[in-house]
Design a protein around this nucleic acid. Structure first.
Lengths: 193, 193
DNA sequence: CGTCTATTTGAATGTACTCAAAAGCGGTGG
DNA sequence: CCACCGCTTTTGAGTACATTCAAATAGACG
């Protein structure tokens, strides 16, 4: 159960056996079926989630009622409404499963305890925030400088594992285009090959 | 010289007189004329900058040679290539003055010293990163759900002090449109009133 | 005053959108 | 296991918005 998350953490920090045990004891497993909510707009994000298995999307709904996918998350990814979690204020994001999903979660107070006991984790979670920041910055630049077609190609190149599993309408939402446009882009691209 | 920055810091953390002195001693003032670079792509961002006076833009240049303004910064703002600074790796951003500018800067080693001596500053700079993260997230959502016209209106509503001082071509770049389009949007809007 | 850059305006083009309808697919109940 | 229903994806036609390229005007700076 902890194999994947420990491998994930070890990419950034090294843990002793004792630290590993302390960490895993703070984690709570959770299972969700397809199309269930992990977080809904207005709730405070109490947890950071690590995905052992499955697939989710994080999205907001704007004043016009449109959904916008901010991010997908699959195995070996962390997710949460970062802002809501860090500030412990009501979320503007919704997190919903796309497949049956198995998670490990750590709540805010447990994370504080973890930081005090194993300060290396401060570094680890700061790096998560940094990476999220960079990903956002890259997305801003790409949304301005690339066409929808180019954005789609980059997406499947960057996240090949996702393309198969995520309904096209969600990918379209992530790319900032309509499902119809994505459909046309895809048929154009297969013709060319 | 330190009035503005201390007021800025005090919005998030309270400092004793001693801590204030320690902090200000680490700051180096710097003056730049219009159209000078504070940071260029490829250099490592050694500093966080606080702007006492003036105006700057942070931008990237993509493979196609297009400039994209990521952010503007004026008095009472902090700026840097956040990623380059945090990871101490070469920057992808350029930072260039739009007006004659007066800054206070703190370098990476000094910040480490500051963290050790006055740990409250860890909180302060984490909040800076958080706010930058949020600003980016909001921009992604708005770039997907708003028209160019709406984005421009939000911009002048959110940063009224900037509109007067920043050449339109830079604002267009920030909004992700061409200068011609922005010109048309503006003439449309004044007609309506 | 002249030069260089920024901004505006015009015309033609292109990309993605909306609305509508058909086709495809998956899950559920008989 | 199959038939049906609802949702997703595709396709089509017409439209809107922003772009490109070109040229004119306005403004800033030495």
């Amino acid at each position: 159960m902890y194999e994947l998350i420990l491998k994930n953490v070890s990419r950034f920090i090294d843990l002793t056996e004792e630290e590993t045990d302390f960490f895993t004891l703070l984690l709570k497993p959770r299972k969700l079926r397809k199309k269930q909510f992990l977080l809904q707009e207005g709730d405070v994000a109490h947890y950071q989630y690590f995905i052992n298995k499955g697939c989710l999307r994080i999205y907001t709904i704007n004043e016009k009622g449109q959904e916008h996918v901010i991010q997908f998350a699959i195995e070996d990814w962390w997710t949460s409404d970062m802002y809501s979690f860090l500030t412990q204020t009501p979320a503007k994001m919704n997190i919903e499963t796309i497949e049956d999903t198995e998670l490990l979660s750590i709540d805010y107070p447990s994370l504080e305890i973890l930081y005090r006991k194993v300060p290396k984790f401060e570094r680890f979670f700061r790096l998560l925030l940094q990476n999220a920041f960079i990903a956002h910055q890259r997305r801003i630049i790409e949304s301005m400088s690339l066409t929808a077609d180019e954005r789609y190609c980059k997406f499947i190149e960057r996240y090949p594992a996702m393309e198969q599993r995520i309904p096209l309408k969600f990918i379209a939402s992530y790319l900032g285009i309509t499902p119809e446009s994505l459909s046309r882009i895809r048929s154009q691209n297969t013709k060319v090959k």
